[in-house]
Design a protein around this nucleic acid. Sequence first.
DNA 1: AGGTTCATGTAACCCGTTACATGATTTC
DNA 2: GAAATCATGTAACGGGTTACATGAACCT
Lengths: 188, 188
Amino acid sequence: MKREETSLLGYAMLGILQQQPLSGYDLRKIFAATPLMAFSDSPGAIYPALERLEHGGLILGRIQKGPGLRQRRVFRLTAAGSGQLRRWLEKPISRDDIVRGADALLLRFSFMDAGLGRAHSARFLEALETELAAYLPTLREFLKSAQEGMPISGRLALESGVQGYESLLRWARRGQAVYRRELRGDAL
Amino acid sequence: MKREETSLLGYAMLGILQQQPLSGYDLRKIFAATPLMAFSDSPGAIYPALERLEHGGLILGRIQKGPGLRQRRVFRLTAAGSGQLRRWLEKPISRDDIVRGADALLLRFSFMDAGLGRAHSARFLEALETELAAYLPTLREFLKSAQEGMPISGRLALESGVQGYESLLRWARRGQAVYRRELRGDAL
DNA sequence: AGGTTCATGTAACCCGTTACATGATTTC
DNA sequence: GAAATCATGTAACGGGTTACATGAACCT
């Protein structure tokens, strides 16, 4: 498996910067204030990540000087950055995406309306539903075969994982309903 | 925040080795076959981690030679290793544990019956329920305040996080019921 | 004048990832 | 005897964590 040329934190920053140009300090505040998708708000993570993105030509920082304002570098996406973000958003959902934590998928989805449009978001949820519905039976089978001779807490922990995916599946279905309602509203 | 002296992968291995002594290769197979709590099955992760644990005096490997058997190093916990594992299992649940993904909590819980006994596991679920019930309102409030001016996909993504925690809360309650039933059965 | 917030960075460390390497043992 | 599996490692790299550092602007 090849290494991604951009880390998840990098994509998170690309997604946010696409919606509005911001400084590193602004990003820190956002990450510090957002309870879900816990990224680090430490400067040791953010500034080097910004530097990497800039060196890769994905973002461009310009110094903003207002009168009596501390020197800030405000970053905005370049065309290459938009392309990189779009390619990431467009990637098909793989089994591996689901097994290795759904967090990255949710992050992608959160930027999808702005990046690719609602119709694509709705299709993403369809694909997620399909993939989850195909994965869950194999998970349940594993659970059934593994739980013999396992202590209660071990069995319960596995069940928690299954139920987490079931909850995600329900969410994906509800989300599709939301988009159907919304897109119908748009058409009127 | 101080750095843990043992990584999550290290604790996972301690927990497994406590239940039965195994070789690095066995651990790799376990990690490769277990779909939940995706740890890497790569030798580049496991063997260095085992080395760290052994240098720290937490595990002890002895070479097992059966006739016509490839040389295997089978690791078992030392007293220090058991202590380290127990301290980890006994740690109170912090808000931070919940915010930064529940995976580590679930891993701890899965070893708890074997490491501390069922009564402790049941209490752990109580504490988890309490903490989740306290956290969810603040999460919901954040969601409500943040979703204005947010695209649909962003709002849905946040809701998915909330629903994940709600699902975990329900799981914690069901789990307590399981233990109540089980402990009553033991008493008979 | 002194403390807080704004704002950006740097350096050491840890550890997981990827990829490569080696040899023994079993299986066909 | 060739291929697959068993079994253990190692080296380079990436990138997040922790902690430290620096200075400007603002408030009191």
